[in-house]
């Protein structure tokens, strides 16, 4: 990476204040974070630390109250096809088949119908859903649904993939397989990933860097580089180097959780957040 090229995503001095029942609530105090092209960044933190808010702002679904987010040097003004989004609730269009869901994402693209068909087939192959092209979403398991959502988010070749706890609703076994699948797709497709999760193992296993957010108001508490070799296999989860990073990340999160609990105990009104 040449030092002169702008970061893929630059989050500078971003603040977000919501109005909750007429009173201002600061979800994010100030976040600065640069993400390089093709980097895989995981964001962890306690509930209500503004993780999803941050992701929504990068996605252009919400606007910062202060500060700016740029992508390749251009400010974000709204959602755009340079960013794909995967949500925890699979958010599939139930009235479209698997292939239909993925193809729907290409409606606004200038590809010819033949090129679209090819792109859809390629992504179905990449997420391992060959043979399920004409299945309805209700016929799929949670893991398969999320494969469709990933394929749909990647089919128009965004340079950034934004994932908001995408595997949070899956069982542990499926989750592990989906993580491996995601890493493979990420290596094949050369895409920058911002991945929100509660799961520290997941964050370290996947990411180049793990960002721990502090809560109420949201700030970057710490950033942990994950200098573990790739391609990664599940064996890594018991590797001493992995454990060492995990220990530090968990300590930071624990500190935040204790802080949040102390706050909740002194002002029970906020505890529902």
């Amino acid at each position: 990476m040449s030092p002169t090229s702008p970061p893929r995503v630059a989050i500078s001095g971003v603040k977000k204040v919501f109005t909750v029942n007429g009173a201002p609530f600061t979800a994010i105090e100030k976040i600065d974070l640069d993400i390089q092209p093709n980097e895989f960044v995981a964001v962890v933190g306690t509930s209500g630390c503004g993780k999803s808010t941050l992701l929504n702002m990068v996605g252009g679904l919400e606007e910062p109250s202060l500060g700016q987010i740029t992508i390749d040097g251009r400010p974000v003004t709204g959602p755009g096809r340079d960013r794909g989004f995967v949500f925890q609730s699979y958010s599939l269009f139930e009235w479209m088949t698997v292939a239909g869901n993925i193809r729907f994402a290409l409606e606004k693209s200038k590809l010819s119908p033949a090129e679209k068909t090819e792109a859809v087939a390629e992504l179905i192959q990449a997420v391992g859903l060959r043979g399920f092209e004409n299945a309805w979403p209700h016929q799929l398991s949670g893991g398969m649904k999320q494969r469709v959502a990933i394929a749909r988010a990647l089919v128009y070749r965004p340079s950034i993939l934004l994932m908001d706890e995408p595997f949070g609703a899956l069982d542990a076994q499926t989750r592990g397989l989906m993580q491996e699948l995601l890493l493979k797709i990420w290596e094949d497709h050369k895409v920058t990933v911002i991945f929100i999760t509660h799961d520290v193992d997941e964050a370290i296993f996947l990411a180049d860097r793990v960002v721990v957010l502090a809560s109420r108001p949201g700030l970057v508490k710490s950033v942990h580089a994950v200098d573990l070799p790739r391609p990664r296999s599940p064996d890594l989860l018991t590797d001493p180097a992995f454990m060492a990073i995990k220990r530090k990340v968990l300590a930071d999160i624990r500190e935040e959780s204790l802080k949040v609990m102390a706050q909740d105990l002194s002002s029970p009104k906020l505890a529902k957040d």
Binding site: L61, P79, F85, F87, R152
Partner: peptide, 14 residues
């Protein structure tokens, strides 16, 4: 209707 469906539509440029 699930809000994530609407947000998905927004991210897809509709």
């Amino acid at each position: 209707v699930d809000g994530a469906l609407i947000r998905t539509g927004q991210t897809l440029g509709f």
